[in-house]
């Protein structure tokens, strides 16, 4: 069973997790998602909530439901790359907002990131 944050709807937190797994390549394009029941058991979440997750992913065109076969991740590369850039944008937005609150300028943020990267590379 999984942990969830109190302040966000559970269906949306599962949408978010699946999106991250797709972007990381843990779930491949064209791959079949677990059935609603299986996903409910894995996560410990009400199946109505899981159904809502799948409907939302379908509305976002990230998955498609084939009748009698199940729910599959899209194979459309443009949708997945769009998803990837959307997640990136969300993370950058949070980063920039936090840095601005601390009083950093754009240039300082960029040099900060470069320094951080170099240290990471050197291990």
């Amino acid at each position: 069973m999984e942990e969830f944050q109190a302040s966000k709807p559970i269906y949306w937190q599962i949408v978010d997790r699946i999106c991250h797994q797709i972007v990381r390549g843990e779930i491949q394009p064209g791959e079949k998602l677990p059935s609603v029941r299986e996903m409910a058991i894995q996560t410990g979440v009400n199946p109505n909530t899981v159904q809502r997750t799948y409907s939302e992913l379908e509305r976002m065109a990230i998955v498609e439901t084939k009748r009698g076969q199940g729910t599959f991740v899209t194979e459309a590369k443009d949708i997945i790359s769009e998803l990837k850039s959307r997640l990136q944008k969300e993370i950058i937005e949070v980063f920039v907002k936090n840095m601005k609150e601390l009083g950093y300028t754009k240039e300082e943020m960029i040099s900060g990131l470069k320094n951080f990267e170099e240290k990471e590379d050197r291990g």
């Binding site: 109190a6 302040s7 709807p9 559970i10």
Partner: peptide, 12 residues
């Protein structure tokens, strides 16, 4: 409704 509590009030 549990999900509505989270969505509208941000409460578990």
């Amino acid at each position: 409704n549990v999900e509505e509590l989270r969505e509208t009030k941000g409460l578990s």
